[in-house]
Structures are given as C-alpha cells and as structure tokens.
Design a protein around this nucleic acid. Structure first.
Length: 572
RNA sequence: GCGCCUGUGGUGAAGGGGUUAUCACCUGAGGUUUCCAACCUCAUGUCCUGGGUUCAAAUCCCAGCGGGCGCACCA
C-alpha cells in the first residue's frame, strides 16, 4: 500500500461509513462546513462528554452555556472586531494579497485602525511597492471580516451582532454569577462546549480549518498572587516540548512537566498543570502520545497581554497541527470588559493575612459651627472642606465651593483628626488560564491515529482501534444465521444491551460472518458477539475482541454485566 | 482572494463529440453456508450546477460551486 494515499483511503471510509461528510452536498456543498454522520456524531458526542468529565474531575469547575449570537459591544471589548477586520490589499500585477496594515506599519503608528479609503491614499502617497514583484499597482483595499455578521431584531434599528468566534466571552460575561456560585473563593473554572464561527478566507485540509467548528474551552480564574499548585507527578514521563526560540531555553527537548516548570521553561505553575491535564485527556481518548508535542509561542506570536502561550500540536496526515491552545491571558479579558462596560463586578476579593491598619489625618469640618454661619450653603462648605488638600489646609482662607461661590473659612470651622482605617483585603481582577480545544481537529487526529491498515489473506483490511471512551458502537450482535431462533436471541440481546445507560449496540444480520466482522472493525466496534447453534442449547454466546480477534464463550448474563461495567477485557 | 490541477452510482475507477455510459467493490431481496470481506440469482443507484458551441455534449468553451496543491491569510 503506498503511503501517499492513506489520507484518501481514510477519507473514503469516513464518507462511506457515515463518519465525516461534506455538508449540503446535493446543493454542491459549502467549503469549510462538514457533517458528522450517524457514526461520526456518536464519536463526537463521546469525545465532548469525555472532555467535560475530564475537567469536572477538578472539582471546582462548572459547565455553562451561552449564546452563539453575540452583540458587537462584547466583541469590541474583546478585541475581535478590531482584530478580525483587517484590510487586505491585492497587487494587480502579481495577484498576491497582503495585509494592508503590515505594509505601512513602519510609517504609521496605528496602522490597524485606518479605514480603507485612507489606507489606499497612504499606500499610494508613500509609494509602497508590492513586496513580491516591486510594482505599484494596487487594487483597492477591502476589509476582510473573519466574523459572521448578523443583526438582532427583524426590522431596521437592528443591533449589530456577530456569531461568536470563541466560547470564552460567554464565560467572562458570567463571571459575577460564577464568583457567587463558588462562594467568592478562587480558584475556580467554567467550561463550555459549543460551536464557534470564523469566516475563513480559504478553508483547507478537510476538517482542519472549518468555518463552523466545535470548540471546548476552560476559563480557569486564579488569584495571580496565590496561583494554585496542582500535582504534576501524574505524568512524570518525558514530554516533547519546543520552547520559545527567542527565550532562554531555545532547543527542542524531552522533559517532564515538573522539570520544565522548575527550569522556568513553563513560566507559570497553573499553566504547567493545565498542560499536563491536557496531555492526559488526549492520551485517554486514544491519541498516540508519541505524536503529541507542546510548542511555546514566541513573544511576537503571543497576544500583547498574554505572558505564556503554548500550542498542543498533534501529528497526523497534515503534519503537526495545533489542536489546543493554552494561554495565560492574565487579567486582560476581565479588565477590558470592565473598561468598556463600565461595571466593576468583574473582580474578586483578596483578604490580607492580617488586616492592615492605616492611620491618616483627615479634615473634619465642625458642622455645629458651619451650620449656623452658612445656613443653606453649609452642605457645600462641608463637602469642599473634606475634599481640600490636607497639606495646604493651614493656609486656607478662601474656599471655593462647587457652585462657584467663594466663602471665608476660619480655623474654628474644622479640626484635623487622626483616624484609623482597618483594611482587611482588596479587590483585584482575577487572572485567567485558558485551554481552548479544537474538538474537530482532535477528532480528526483521533480518527487518523486509530486508523490501522493491514492485510488479511491478501486483501486490504481496515481497523479503527477506538477505545471504550470514543467507540461509536460498543458492541455488535451477530446471529450466525437468521434461523432456528438465533435471530430472535440476537434481537432480544440487542434490546437488552441498548437499555443499559450509555451503551449503544447494533445488530447486523446481512452477508457472511466474516464480512460482518470486517464492517464492524472498520468503524471500530470493540466487541463482536455471535449467537450460534450452541447459544440455542445453553444460552452462551461468543465474544470476539477486535484487536486480536480472539474469541471466548460466556453466558449472556456474564456478557451483559461486563458490558455494563466495561470489564469485558477481564473475561479474557 | 489569486494561480495551476481537478469533479462520472455509496466508494474507487474506465470512457474524452454519435444507439440504452462501463467495471470492481459496496448496498438491498432471495438462495446456499456451522465463525473472519466465499458462492449463485435478481435488484437499486451515476456524468457537480448553470449557460454557450453543435444536428448531437458526460466529452469542447465560459461561469459558478466543490476538492487537491502553491502563494497569501488564519491558528
């Protein structure tokens, strides 16, 4: 079998067996949109469930669910409206396209905020030639909107909105509610799975770059001064890491998470623990640990606010692909939502170990004297006195009130008092460590790593080696023949299996037994149960293990019990 | 977005102006068969879409849509 075609053979199977298919195909299809068919949707569901269960195990993590339609203001604050509206410009002589702001960044301070018409003027006035062919023949620059725009409300007066480009904003919006839910104690996390939308210029590479995609994100809110430490010893073996090439450790290495943290390659303890949790999740799903690596962003690649970013990359038919991005987003997101919205509820309280006692002098107006003298204006006088600079109070003779009037002040009207203020803590904006998972990319690599091509009696033979966590069908029931009552036993057994929570079983009666095994292997069914003549006599069935084709004979009850407990392996 | 290549049953392919479009596998029905893609009979199903050229288009031309690769973009 030639290596170059493995990708094509795999995609053929995925289509034929209803795993992944192009969407809207009878109308010609739409690039960047895919369907999960009957088999694929089941895999996707199980991957997402595993993901949710994995993070829920932390104990201080809850799931939330927010709208995909997001008002423009939210995305202005998050920076998406700015970032995702870059101007593109095209060279008429060589047809290359460039980001217009990149062409003029050396001559313009704020190159990202220029409108299209002004951009064209600047480029032509400064004779910026095409970096590729050195000609000065540009088309007009056009904004390239990477978000799907929509409007809330049916008539005019619509409020501009976009389909969310990430689920994270929903979690940020819910911070006040999360903070209350967790009894105002950090750290805690919120997870969300769901669709995200990016109107990619050119979706490529099958399901790697989609316009509508499944994402799963955890926002882990922490106190930057008391970052939580999590046990890193779970994964003590060596991990492939590519640290920031501009950093101190600039060579690819095999190192454990705890060593990488000790050496300062990973710059934050919580980031280290999230990296380790991420790896554990991927390996549990069945991805090949040797095809997973962590790559640190260079400082230029990183968003300006982030301090430590890692990509978890997985190797497959398309090379190394980023499947998870893990970032220390610091206080940036909550901070900018506070700034843009004007609220101050996106904060947490940090109690000091012992309350701080602050002593200070204040101006204390003597109201019993001021009142009779100034009558109606007394309130304003008291106010103005309190706000007066205490260092200059001794020279004070004429005081200007907020209504513009000036009044004469004498020493009898106030006194300087020393007061004690007990400060037991402070408000601060929590920092956020965020792992963002591209579920479709992970599923692709799961399919890729699970897909095994072998030969059986001279013929190509395909097996998907899924584990219990992700297999679309837990077992297939096969009556050897559909006569003498074998079919009936099989139907009853199928029904019983499907009544077990979380178990999905199918029956297959058509064609020879070998063909049915092959069909089941192709979509990764781990167990094939055969009802044969012996079953008619003593109620036993045979179980065939997909990965080594070894068969054992057990009673139906034994099978059911072990299927429920996922312990069939123990019968061997 | 641009350039090059490309699109034929569910899958993979042949056919490159001329009757009713071919093949393999798959799928369905029946038969046969005592556990790894067996066999027999029958059946379903296709020229991406829209224009144009022509007496005649799956075939040639143009556009759109989809796919692959490169550039660019994105992460």
């Amino acid at each position: 079998m030639s290596e170059g075609q493995r990708l094509e053979r795999l995609t053929s199977i995925l289509r034929r067996r209803g795993v992944i298919l192009p969407s809207f195909e009878i109308y010609g299809g739409v690039s960047g949109l895919i369907d999960y068919g009957p088999v694929g949707a089941r895999i996707k569901r199980k991957v997402i469930n595993s993901w949710i269960n994995h993070w829920m195990k932390m104990g201080n993590v809850v799931e939330v669910d927010s709208p995909t339609i997001t008002p423009e203001s939210v995305l202005i604050a998050s920076g998406h409206v700015g970032e995702f509206n870059d101007l593109m410009i095209e060279c008429r002589s060589c047809n290359n396209a460039f980001r217009a702001d990149h062409l003029i960044e050396h001559i313009h301070e704020n190159s990202e905020s220029i409108v299209a018409s002004e951009m064209d003027k600047i480029i032509n006035a400064n004779s910026i030639n095409c970096p590729n062919c050195d000609e000065l023949r540009w088309n007009e620059s056009k904004p390239m909107n990477l978000m799907f725009k929509t409007g809330i409300g049916a008539m005019k007066d619509q409020r501009t909105a976009y389909m969310r480009p990430e689920t994270a904003q929903g979690m940020f919006m819910l911070f006040p509610s999360l903070y209350r839910h967790f009894r105002q104690k950090l750290p805690f996390g919120a997870i969300q799975t769901g669709k995200g939308y990016r109107n990619e210029i050119s979706p490529r590479q099958g399901m790697i770059r989609l316009r509508e995609f499944n994402m799963a994100e955890l926002e882990y809110f922490i106190d930057p001064e008391n970052p939580p430490t999590i046990d890193l010893s779970k994964y003590d073996h060596k991990i492939s890491m590519i640290p920031d090439p501009d950093g101190e450790f600039n060579t690819k290495c095999e190192i454990s998470f705890s060593d990488a943290l000790d050496k300062g390659i990973i710059r934050h303890p919580t980031v280290a623990s999230i990296l380790s949790e991420t790896l554990e999740f991927l390996i549990d799903l069945g991805l090949d640990a040797n095809k997973i690596r962590f790559r640190q962003h260079t400082s230029t690649e990183m968003a300006h606010y982030a301090t430590d970013c890692w990509d978890c990359e997985i190797l497959g038919e398309y090379g190394w692909i980023e499947c998870v991005g893990i970032a220390n987003r610091t206080s940036h997101d909550l901070q900018s939502h506070e700034t843009y919205s004007g609220v101050n509820s996106l904060r947490a309280w940090r109690a000091f170990d012992s309350p701080k006692i602050e002593k200070k002098n204040i101006i204390s107006p003597k109201t019993s004297i001021i009142g009779p003298i100034f009558k109606g204006e007394a309130g304003l006088v008291i106010q103005a006195l309190k706000e007066y600079d205490i260092l200059k109070i001794k020279e004070l003779k004429i005081l200007k009130l907020s209504n513009g009037n000036k009044v004469k002040i004498t020493k009898e009207m106030f006194e300087i008092k020393e007061i004690e203020k007990i400060i037991s803590g402070e408000w601060f904006i929590p920092h956020i460590i965020e792992p963002a998972f591209g579920i479709d990319r992970i599923i692709w690599h799961l399919l890729d790593h699970s897909y095994n091509e072998t030969e059986k009696e001279g013929e190509n033979y395909s097996v998907m080696k899924f584990n219990d966590l992700v297999c679309p069908i837990d077992a297939i029931i096969l009556p050897l023949f559909e006569k003498d009552g074998m079919g009936e036993i099989a139907s009853k057994l199928t029904k019983k299996c499907n009544h077990i929570d979380g178990i999905k079983v199918e029956m297959d009666t058509s064609k020879s037994i070998g063909r049915r095994y092959a069909r089941a292997d192709e979509i990764g069914v781990p167990w094939a149960v055969t009802v044969d003549h012996t079953s008619l006599e003593d109620g036993t069935i045979t179980i065939r293990r997909r990965d080594d084709q070894i068969q054992i004979r057990v009673t139906i009850d034994e099978f059911l019990m072990n299927l429920r407990n996922k312990t069939i392996d123990n019968l061997y």
